[in-house]
Design a binder for these strands. Structure first.
Lengths: 262, 262
DNA sequence: CAGTAGAACATGTCTAGACGCGTTGAGGAG
DNA sequence: CTCCTCAACGCGTCTAGACATGTTCTACTG
């Protein structure tokens, strides 16, 4: 071993009120935060920690579990536990749906990813006619069936986002919006061609831990929350013409917004 | 017991590849999602689950641990495990720093909370001269000392947000901004009075799991991520006059933004 | 009747060990 | 030299039990 990490971990304080597994987690967390363990580095193995601290394996596992739920480390079956590498994040700017970008002929996700030098992909597109969930229906102002466009986005092969758009059928039916590939500029370009000039978007941002299906779809490590965005597009008549419900891996994005001071 | 929850949980499938503790968690999660267990309801106790499924206690605890990290339940020592109640959320609108609100004489947090019928409090105000962390320094365009204003916000007695503002000393020194209570309208009103008419704010939103100190300051249950906001205020000369670094309990807020389509 | 000690029950922490399965590298077979 | 087998190692799952500590309610005491 080039560097004796386990030997530098210190010893338990048996007089402390703090639980043993928390003390062990504290030592490991400190080693990560102080930079003695870098991104991607392997932590001491469970049996090394058992030997060093003189505790049972379950106690050590409890410590590692804690660090996992904090998002600091990731365990890989058969290999070891590693300091979690921070993936490159995408900065999303609040003008990402501005018309000038759309006019380049690219959808927002693609255009911005390429500008950031990231290879984007889109995946698993499903277009259906569907009754929208009731919070979406409330935003669309109708509980009728709508066109739903579901898809998954990837960065450099890693899935980072799933999104489902809902567009009222009277707008979408029989247009390229109902096709899997809606053409250059994406569905917003098609909406504008159909006379629904876009005025603004309202976006709501929540964050929470992912559901099992979201963990699966985005290959999320434990300790990774998700952003839940609900974006409503309004045309110049004030009508909601699209609601987009998005789940994003929170470790892959920074959302940027400009707020008015006036 | 008015309702035999544990009896309705189904049995393990010994032929399944899915780990036993995951199957148990699945049943409990389903009971919550289907509404057989409501917010605040107590789950079957560990020993009841041990009896029902015929497994050891550690296996049951593993299931409950999983649901805790998902944010679905919360364990209370000596009392039981309960379906986590969803606290009332605050909707933050993207115009929350608009001047018209400031002119009412109230700071943004207070004004918006009262409008939502929530009793707001501010807590633990610390004003110092401090060298800002380097990401903040980069936004201020200076690594010199700045005035830092730290404080904690509460809703109905529950801590939900900590924030630290950094203001360049040449702007803040000797003004009410350097006082614990900066007066009506908050520091933004004072900045404008000092000739720094505000033009816009840039806000960056991240989400991650909380650090131990954040768990402590915000009394976070496990399975609760935090929003990390960094907001930079620009005056009409284009100068960054304040950077505000905020940690918010993610289960207490919905962030709203308006995006331009042009 | 009020107050309290204690039992019963709840979760928290920890031990010691067993078996399973994915990964890796050394050493032998071809 | 190449390929394959297998042992060593690493984490994943599960058992059975012990003791600690917080909570609640009962029943006894004064």
């Amino acid at each position: 071993m080039s560097h004796d990490v386990v030997g530098e971990l210190g010893q338990l304080d048996p007089t402390s009120d703090r639980a043993v597994f928390r003390q062990i987690a504290d030592y490991l967390r400190e080693a990560i935060e102080r930079g003695r363990l870098h991104e991607g580095d392997q932590l001491p193995s469970e049996s090394q920690l058992v030997d060093h601290f003189g505790v049972s394996r379950m106690t050590v596992r409890n410590s590692l579990q804690l660090l996992q739920t904090e998002g600091l480390v990731i365990a890989e079956h058969g290999k070891g536990v590693f300091v979690r590498p921070r993936p490159p994040v995408r900065r999303l700017a609040s003008d990402r749906f501005a018309r000038r970008h759309r006019e380049q002929g690219k959808a927002a996700f693609i255009a911005e990813a390429e500008q950031a030098g990231i290879k984007p992909e889109v995946d698993g597109i499903v277009v259906r006619e569907d009754r929208p969930p009731k919070d979406v229906a409330a935003r669309l102002g109708s509980t009728r069936k709508a066109l739903s466009r579901r898809r998954r986005y990837l960065h450099e092969g890693r899935p980072v986002e799933t999104a489902t758009s809902y567009i009222p059928l009277d707008i979408a039916k029989g247009t390229p919006i109902a096709e899997p590939n809606p053409g250059p500029g994406g569905i917003y370009a098609r909406l504008e061609e159909a006379g629904h000039t876009l005025d603004h978007f309202d976006e709501e941002v929540r964050s929470r831990m992912p559901l099992p299906e979201e963990i699966k779809a985005l290959h999320l490590a434990s300790g990774t929350p998700v952003f839940h965005l609900v974006r409503t597009a309004f045309d110049t008549d004030g009508r909601a013409v699209e609601v987009c419900d998005t789940i994003m891996a929170a470790d892959a994005f920074v959302l940027g917004y400009r707020l008015p001071a006036r």
